[in-house]
Write a protein that binds this DNA or RNA. Structure first.
Lengths: 173, 173
DNA sequence: ACTATACAAAGTGTGCGGAGTTTGTATAGT
DNA sequence: ACTATACAAACTCCGCACACTTTGTATAGT
């Protein structure tokens, strides 16, 4: 249901997406939607929060996998955090999130911070530090690289490939 | 004169900036402006081209300095290419450039490519390659990192500091 | 090599009324 | 736990006239 809402908000934008559109996408009636979410702003809030929560959690799971080397886990984590929103949706989701700041409050700042924190931790935990640069700085740099790449590529596969290069370069062999 | 025009276009946007505004900023009369540029689109074109040309050339000079190690030259080059447009002007210049594609033709693609090419060359020329990653990929990654960072920082000093970290990660040690 | 002034043509923001849409709620039914 | 239908209030969109601004050019003057 929140996934359907995300689709609708992402393709139409917050303003142009109507509750009716979301209801249809979620296969319920519009009044039915109001049984779950008391207003459009609240639905939007829940939608974005769900998407962000989902992404960090997926990233977290990827980073926690004990069987894979750091660089593979990092590729996976970045792919799950940002790769999903690459391509047609990339700008639209971005615009969606930071063009309605009053609706989302601290979320658009807090989730990236949380993601950054878990990446930092994963890098720090990997004994095998190959540079003198602090883990937090490595994480922040990779995060910026991911943002930059996201705006240049047109498919998730391309995003993954370019992030693989970046991670190789920054913390690979 | 083109610098004055850049200021005006950057702060008001292409549409809201009038020829009168530009003329005042350049301390000439509006009809006088038409003696140099036959129309507003042409003035805009010349303004952006001048700014981009200026930036690549400055970057090129930085990369050519034979007395400094690669990483210092790279920091300097990225600072000159992108650092100038960080802070208040960052988004505005970006919007300015890619929200008027019909006015600028191939410029917004060609100049970044040219910058990428000279960075690639500088990295390739530096014998001292510490990675197995091709120079073009290193350059592209750094370029994406710079784009990402540009949207996160609020001052040129901060941009420089973060790019220093990024470049350190690649060839610092 | 410019400025000041002037001008037509085109463009742009503004207020307005009315048609249509959307929100949030209610109510009756399954 | 929902759907279908209905409804008032608010909001958005559209066309349209109007004033105002802007563009590009001309002309006379320094």
């Amino acid at each position: 249901m929140l996934d359907a809402a995300l689709q609708v908000f992402a393709s139409y934008g917050y303003r142009k997406a109507s509750m009716e559109d979301v209801a249809q996408a979620a296969d319920i009636s519009r009044p039915g939607l109001y049984l779950y979410f008391s207003s459009k702003p609240e639905l939007f809030r829940a939608t974005v929060e769900h998407a962000l929560e989902d992404s960090v959690e997926a990233a977290q799971r990827a980073l926690a996998d004990p069987d894979r080397p750091l660089h593979e886990r990092l590729i996976e984590a970045f792919d799950r955090w940002a790769g999903r929103y690459v391509g047609p949706m990339a700008d639209e989701i971005g615009v969606l999130i930071d063009s309605n700041p009053e609706l989302l409050g601290a979320m658009p700042v807090e989730y990236p911070e949380r993601f950054l924190a878990i990446v930092t931790e994963a890098i720090a935990a990997d004994g095998d530090g190959r540079t003198h640069v602090p883990p937090g700085d490595v994480a922040a740099t990779l995060h910026s690289t991911a943002s930059g790449i996201k705006h240049e590529v047109s498919s998730r596969a391309e995003f993954r490939a370019r992030m693989t290069t970046a991670i190789d370069l920054y913390c690979g062999r």
